[in-house]
Amino acid sequence: MMLSKLIRITTVPLSLDKLLTGQLKYMVGKGFDVYMISSMGNNVHFLEERESSTFIAVEMTRFISPIKDLVSLFKLVRVFRKLKPDIVHTHTPKAGLLGMMAARIANVPIRLHTVAGLPLMEATGMKRRLLEYTEWLTYKCAIKVYPNSTNLKEFILKSKFCSSDKLKVIGNGSSNGINTNHFKISPELVSKADSIKENFGLTESNFTFIFIGRLVKDKGIEELIQAFTSLAERHAQIRLLLVGPFEPELDPLSAECLAMIGNSNAIINVGYQDDVRPYLAISNVLVFPSYREGFPNVPMQAGCFELPAIVTDINGCNEIIANEENGLIIPPKNIDALQNAMSRLLTGEALYGKLQKNSRPMIVDRYEQKHLWSLIYREYESLLGG
């Protein structure tokens, strides 16, 4: 019996690593012959071993580059014609556009695209119109499109990128769910957390806010730094832990913001970390003031560690977090609202305790990873004809 061939594509290998952890190996266990495609990276051999899947490098840029994009498209078509996959399933905007176009050209029968955030939401003018067209073209080439949140589905329908019969939110949302057994306190994590606290001079008297993600403007970092700096003037014991990389080539922070980060003794910048769990274990509140998301993993991860979350009222975030139940929801790009929410959780012991108590159960009940994987597998089986 021949195995059904499944190809999953992202623009860069980091997305395969972090957004789809464990899912590809699950599909291998269910009888699929799985291939991964993205640009080349340092960790691809590790990915092949972890996911029991074959990696194929096709260089793709994250920005608009017509000549390079055309070269990538031709390479993808060549790969698809050689492998003859049953399913091509894409993630991230550029991989979605090129992957769906190439799959249609190569007559791949089942062409699927997951939407996990739309950069066009923060674009204007000609750039926005171009991004809207590329979204429309991606969905035109796909036979099914999976927004990873209900609000994102509504935005796509409102934008008229495709018809409702092509759209489906799987489960309660998310692209990969969350491994709730992995994201919980253990003796090993406590030991690592204690070492980190000692390294940065953190004590029981400190109250630590944490941000995890790319340190760029559209994640709300400018507002976060200003809100935190003002709050720290009145509460010397608070700290802000920044976990993630800068991306100056795509969405740089202002020189003023970078100076505030670099000059503050209360802001701890640790850069990108492969394992964010020890940093969650030493924190009290997640602050995630992003401008746009699909269905972010970070609020789910924080919730598993019993951290209340302050998030903006945007796609995904306002589905994971219920206001006043497991966190606080604020308007995006609003420094005063962000500072007020941080102050409430810092000083409101009863409110903090209530949100903390609810945080993990609300994530476990709705987003357990293996349940979502089983729903995606059933979707594949249905499209393959049972």
Results as ranks from 00 to 15, higher is better:
Tyr35Phe: 15
Leu167Glu: 10
Ser163Ala: 09
Pro13Asp: 13
Val88Lys: 03
Gln369Cys: 03
Val108Ser: 10
Glu49Pro: 02
Leu250His: 14
Ser195Tyr: 01
Ala123Val: 03
Trp373Thr: 01
Tyr377Val: 00
Lys197Glu: 13
Phe63Leu: 10
His371Ser: 13
Leu3Phe: 15
Ile67Lys: 11
Phe211Trp: 12
Phe46Arg: 12
Leu242Thr: 07
Ala57Cys: 09
Ile185His: 06
Pro93Met: 00
Cys317Met: 04
Ser290Leu: 02
Val285Tyr: 09
Ile37Asp: 03
Ala102Lys: 02
Met101Thr: 10
Gly201Thr: 08
Asp275Arg: 00
Gln273Pro: 04
Ser72His: 05
Ile330Glu: 14
Gly99Val: 01
Gly173Ser: 03
Ala95Val: 01
Leu375Trp: 03
Ile335Gly: 02
Lys166Cys: 05
Glu319Trp: 03
Arg344Val: 08
Leu73Ala: 03
Leu375Pro: 06
Pro289Gly: 13
Ile321Glu: 02
Pro147Phe: 03
Met260Leu: 12
Gly125Lys: 01
Ser359Ile: 00
Ala102Ile: 01
Tyr26Asn: 04
Ile321Gly: 03
Asn323Arg: 05
Asn148Ile: 14
Ile267Ser: 06
Arg344Asn: 14
Gln226Met: 09
Glu59Leu: 02
Ser164Ile: 06
Asp274Met: 06
Ser374Leu: 01
Ser163Thr: 11
Leu98Cys: 02
Val145His: 12
Asn334Tyr: 09
Thr61Val: 04
Gly125Met: 00
Gly173Leu: 02
Lys184Gly: 03
Val169Gln: 03
His89Cys: 02
Asn340His: 10
Val287Ser: 11
His235Ala: 10
Ile170Lys: 01
Met126Gly: 04
Leu286Phe: 09
Ile37Asn: 02
Tyr367Ile: 01
Glu368Gln: 15
Ala255Arg: 05
Ser159Asn: 06
